[in-house]
């Protein structure tokens, strides 16, 4: 692994660089889905404890992001999308990022364990370790299925939110886990098709880099069909009401329609990949809307 050195070692990193290391955008969606998992639970926590649980989940996401950037600083330096991050930009020493990530991760798990419950803390620790060791260290540079298996890391937050409130796991949080897990491949591959050259430059074996666009699109469709089934299933299973069922059906049908458009369009260059662009943007709104509707539906029930 290439080691990126800092441009000015005597200059301490700015606090904003530490903040950037936590991947605030990812953290925002983690907090949102965790909150939805917590709101969907049949038990409600006192507001202070609910805030603490969400804070612990956010800090764990930040720790995972920091450790991911620590390990991937060599790849990040090669890719246009990530070259301005604190480590490849030379704003911080790698060792500092490692210490920050480990400290934040340990603190978040201890906070969850001491203030909320042990099961939530264990799941939180597993989610950090899964993202860092299984996805970042193990899979990302090894296999084009990296984001399929690694997608599990991003699927933990609603499950942990639910467990923080109830102290146990049941069918609905597992379905919420499944929705994000199955949503990750079409979402990530839509972006990967658009910035295929950037991933190739970084040596990351994303599916569009090592396989044809046709293969990628076929796999996107496969996972979208599974995701649609998972997203609608809480309704017929009696775990959510008709409000969620109708909204999930309509939104998933649009998602499926956009994926079919991606498959039939067969654009070759990023400039002409209009369908992929639409799908990527829509997929972000989709996951937020699905979880917001599920939480609303369960709160109204």
């Amino acid at each position: 692994m290439t080691v990126v050195t800092v441009s000015n070692p005597s200059l301490p990193a700015d606090w904003r660089d530490f903040f950037a290391l936590t991947k605030p955008r990812v953290m925002r969606s983690v907090v949102f889905t965790a909150l939805c998992g917590m709101l969907a639970a049949p038990v409600s926590l006192p507001p202070v404890l609910a805030f603490t649980a969400i804070l612990a989940i956010a800090l764990a996401a930040g720790a995972a992001g920091a450790l991911n950037q620590w390990y991937e600083s060599d790849i990040d330096a090669l890719m246009k999308r990530t070259a301005k991050r604190p480590l490849p930009a030379g704003k911080m020493e790698r060792e500092t990022a490692l210490q920050f990530g480990v400290a934040l991760g340990v603190f978040s798990v201890l906070l969850m364990g001491l203030a909320i419950n042990i099961l939530a803390a264990v799941l939180l620790a597993v989610s950090i370790l899964f993202y860092v060791l299984v996805y970042t260290v193990g899979l990302k540079r090894l296999t084009p299925q990296n984001i399929v298996i690694g997608g599990a890391a991003g699927a933990f937050p609603p499950l942990i939110g639910w467990v923080a409130a109830t102290g146990s796991v049941s069918a609905l949080p597992l379905l919420m886990f499944a929705i994000i897990f199955l949503w990750t491949p079409p979402h990530s591959w839509a972006l990967a098709l658009l910035i295929r050259d950037d991933y190739a430059k970084g040596g990351v074996p994303m599916l569009p880099v090592v396989a044809s666009a046709k293969t990628t699109r076929a796999q996107m469709l496969f996972y979208t069909v599974l995701m649609t089934a998972a997203a609608i299933s809480p309704w017929p299973l009696g775990l959510a009401g008709s409000l969620y069922g109708i909204v999930a059906s309509v939104l998933s049908a649009i998602f499926l329609g956009l994926t079919v458009w991606v498959v039939v369009q067969r654009a070759e260059t990023p400039a002409t990949m209009k369908a992929e662009r639409w799908l990527f943007v829509y997929s972000i709104g989709y996951i937020l809307a699905i979880f917001a509707t599920l939480a609303t539906d369960r709160c109204l029930a």
Partner: peptide
């Protein structure tokens, strides 16, 4: 936060 958690747990 620690103070607020303690109060919430006692309550």
């Amino acid at each position: 936060l620690v103070f607020a958690i303690s109060i919430a747990k006692i309550k």
